[in-house]
């Protein structure tokens, strides 16, 4: 927690962050398991049963197993993180998350030598998720990070917004938040975390490898094939909202640029 507070002060741009309203954050979501329209998750996600909930942690860890959500929470330190959230569709919000560092969870399970990546999986419940009857993506939704990205202090598992439990449409009961990557990397309603030594397949990359890379770092200089990523539309500005320039690594360049030193970010998009 202390480290992050220092980091937040370090990035000057961070201080001006004005969070979006609860209404904005919880009514405009991409969660295709509940439908492809932005209003679908808020309408249909109430059917998702999030109690009880457990997360299977497996792969290259010392203590693999099913971890009960409540047991995880009793071990973790939850704090507020106000982050920019930049969707690959070129809109953005500012969200006051509550959560704990993913590194703490991984350390709890004990990451073994030779681990290089972390894979994540969303719940797949056809009875509770009306959207999965359509083959929009190859369900269940999967995401992945390189181990150093996963262990980075900015990377959190969010369990709340505005000090309230995270609503279903935002990925209850726990979801990943990687603020310097496009929003789809921040996988929701996680049921499985696998530590591995190979780059895991990720849903959008499998669906459209030309459009969605494994890294998907926010980068104003590398366009999506179907739209420019140079600017974004901040949600909450109404019908005449002005576009604003998109920041490299979504404004977290100071903190994370080092992770990608020497990499061609146009190739590793």
């Amino acid at each position: 927690g202390v480290g992050l507070a220092g980091m937040a002060r370090g990035a000057a741009a961070q201080e001006a962050l004005e969070p979006n309203s609860w209404e904005e954050i919880t009514s405009y979501n991409n969660y295709y398991e509940f439908g492809t329209r932005k209003e679908d998750p808020a309408k249909y996600a109430h059917t998702l049963v999030t109690e009880p909930w457990s997360v299977k942690i497996d792969g290259l860890v010392d203590k693999p197993g099913e971890y009960d959500f409540q047991d995880i929470m009793s071990e973790m330190t939850v704090e507020e993180r106000i982050y920019r959230f930049r969707c690959v569709e070129a809109w953005s919000m500012v969200i006051p998350w509550n959560g704990f560092e993913l590194a703490d969870l991984l350390n709890m399970a004990g990451v073994q030598d030779g681990a290089k990546y972390v894979a994540f999986e969303t719940a797949y419940r056809p009875d509770e998720m009306p959207g999965v009857q359509y083959p929009v993506l190859d369900w269940p939704y999967r995401e992945g990070l390189r181990l150093d990205e996963a262990m980075h202090p900015l990377t959190i598992m969010a369990t709340g917004i505005y000090d309230r439990p995270i609503p279903n449409q935002n990925g209850a009961p726990l979801r990943l938040v990687v603020p310097w990557k496009y929003g789809f990397k921040s996988i929701k309603s996680i049921v499985r975390v696998t530590v591995t030594d190979v780059e895991p397949p990720t849903s959008w990359n499998v669906a459209g490898p030309r459009e969605y890379g494994f890294y998907s770092n926010v980068n104003p200089n590398v366009d999506h094939p179907r739209w420019s990523q140079a600017t974004e539309r901040p949600i909450g500005g109404g019908l005449f909202a002005k576009r604003i320039p998109t920041l490299m690594f979504n404004g977290y360049e100071q903190e994370v640029a080092g992770l990608y030193e020497g990499m061609d970010l146009a190739k590793n998009y």
């Binding site: 009514s27 949600i235 109404g238």
Partner: peptide, 18 residues
Amino acid sequence: LFYQGLTGSLGVDPIEAL
């Protein structure tokens, strides 16, 4: 629809909605 976009009835991203 334009009026709804102005008054917020089209959701929080009225540009895309319209």
